[in-house]
């Protein structure tokens, strides 16, 4: 299940397991530092093994799968492009992933500029002149694709790590 060789994703939500029965005392919560410990050590090991470019690609792809599964299990709604962002804004807060704010949105061309403050992955990281939220780019792309069945380009243009305080993503049809 977890260690099968594969060419395509076989991830499904049940791989996350039954947390309430598995952690009756500790529950569903874990610190953001521990989440980041895992993410940045995985990134570290991947870069060591495969280099920055390949690691970014892996992170994007993982984000895309996560976004698609997150959409299926936590969002799944009917509505137009703008409506998705209304829902996403609420769900991201509900799951403490970040504070999404739409800056501009063009329903006709299906494009948007959004920011995410207090982002789970990067808020508070040291400033280093690197946009770091590759996983988030994939995550948002996966959500958008799942809702619209259209491929989107999601590009992070400003990031906490570049000293921007909020992460800004420019979204357009691919």
């Amino acid at each position: 299940m977890f260690k099968e060789e594969r060419k395509n994703s076989i991830f499904s939500w049940n791989m996350i397991g039954d947390i309430s029965s598995g952690r009756p005392n500790l529950g569903n919560d874990v610190g953001v530092d521990i989440y980041r410990l895992m993410q940045y050590t995985i990134r570290d090991a991947l870069i060591s093994e495969f280099g920055v470019e390949a690691t970014d690609k892996i992170f994007f792809n993982a984000g895309f799968i996560a976004g698609s599964e997150f959409y299926k299990n936590k969002i799944s709604c009917n509505g137009d492009f703008a409506f998705l962002f209304d829902i996403l804004e609420k769900v991201l807060i509900e799951h403490k992933i970040g504070i999404l704010r739409v800056e501009t949105l063009d329903e006709e061309n299906m494009s948007a500029v959004i920011t995410i403050a207090e982002d789970l992955d990067c808020s508070g990281l040291p400033v280093c002149d690197e946009v770091i939220c590759t996983f988030d780019e994939g995550f948002l792309s996966g959500i958008l694709y799942s809702h619209t069945k259209i491929n989107f380009t999601v590009k992070e243009t400003d990031c906490w790590c570049t000293g921007d305080r909020v992460c800004r993503f420019v979204i357009s049809k691919a």
């Binding site: 501009t104 400003d158 305080r165």
Partner: peptide, 18 residues
């Protein structure tokens, strides 16, 4: 001050959208 302004810009744009 740039961080703060960036945050302010994002917030104002968001309020305009809302």
């Amino acid at each position: 001050i740039y961080n703060a302004l960036m945050n302010l810009e994002s917030t104002l744009n968001h309020l305009t959208w809302k």
